[in-house]
């Protein structure tokens, strides 16, 4: 053992920052979970607060908002996965078919751009563009003779805005992985398929797609795990009391009740519940991909 450590000391040194990061920022804070089983009092501290068992979990499940929160979180994540996952694949496949390489590189570069602006700026831009008075999207709607829509104040539009802006921001960046996977496809396979009389569509279906399938599976597993971990910032920046009905997700609810209102124990209980569900999602997505195909994360 010690011999092995001595032999691999430089590798272990390289690994150390990652391990330390996870221990300090992920594992140590996990001890805070204990306050979800206690009636946490800021002045008594974690150890001296009295135990209350599952009180806060029961409080959450008997709360009429609980169902709506879980549904919103799940639906937002599901739509994001459903529409956001194929978008970079389609973009990569279209880019792959472009023969004029300057044009291809130009489109690629431009589509990466939105990835580099922060969520706060994106939310600000969305507020400006979707504004019923000065937003250009409403200008277009007005030009066709329809009534302007106050997108950010209508609950029915929230999921569309969230998912569409997510695709706008991340599709180009996401396509990098697929384009990289596409370069590993053997050109001989294309030639063979062409000689066998396969058209463009058939070549895409039988050569390109199987070529990038492993990358797709791994990204699908990773994305499925995040289905409930809806980015807090973006929802927080785009929602308002008028759209809580569809926009309020677990993380924003935890923030409002746990931190703003100071119910630390209750907030922790809700968040831990979400973590457990999230874990089940990653685990089952990985299990499914191992069963269906050969690739899986572990």
């Amino acid at each position: 053992m010690i011999k092995q450590v001595m032999r691999d000391k430089y590798f272990l040194l390289l690994l150390a920052p990652v391990l330390i990061y996870y221990v300090i920022f992920k594992y140590v804070p996990m001890f805070g979970i204990v306050i979800s089983f206690k009636n946490y009092n800021l002045f008594k501290g974690i150890w001296d607060s009295e135990w209350v068992g599952l009180k806060y979990y029961i409080q959450f499940f008997t709360n009429p908002d609980a169902f709506e929160l879980i549904r919103n979180t799940f639906l937002l994540g599901a739509y994001k996965l459903l529409f956001g996952f194929p978008a970079p694949i389609i973009l990569a496949l279209l880019l792959n078919e472009v023969r004029w390489s300057i044009y291809k590189r130009f489109v690629q570069t431009v589509s990466y751009l939105p990835h580099f602006i922060s969520v706060v700026v994106v939310a600000g831009m969305l507020t400006l563009f979707l504004s019923p008075t000065i937003g250009f999207i409403n200008d277009v709607i007005k030009a066709f003779g329809f009534q302007p829509i106050n997108f950010l104040m209508e609950a029915g539009w929230f999921r569309t805005i969230y998912v569409a802006s997510g695709i706008w921001q991340e599709a180009g960046w996401g396509s990098i992985i697929y384009l990289a996977a596409l370069t590993t496809v053997d050109p001989q396979l294309y030639e063979a398929a062409e000689i066998d009389g396969a058209g463009r569509w058939k070549r895409m279906l039988h050569v390109t797609l199987p070529g990038i399938a492993p990358a797709m599976v791994i990204l699908l597993v990773l994305n499925a795990g995040q289905i409930l971990e809806i980015g807090f910032e973006k929802v927080f920046l785009l929602y308002n009391p008028a759209t809580y009905e569809t926009a309020d997700v677990i993380s924003t609810y935890v923030y409002r009740t746990g931190i703003v209102k100071g119910n630390f124990s209750y907030g922790t209980a809700v968040d831990l519940f979400m973590g457990v569900i999230s874990f089940i999602f990653v685990f089952s997505a990985n299990y499914a991909s191992r069963r269906l195909g050969e690739t899986s994360l572990w």
Partner: peptide, 22 residues
Amino acid sequence: FDVVNALLLSGVVVATLYPFVY
């Protein structure tokens, strides 16, 4: 298909670039 593809990708370019220009 090449023409349609080029037009589609031009759409992508406009959609990503216009907000920046604006």
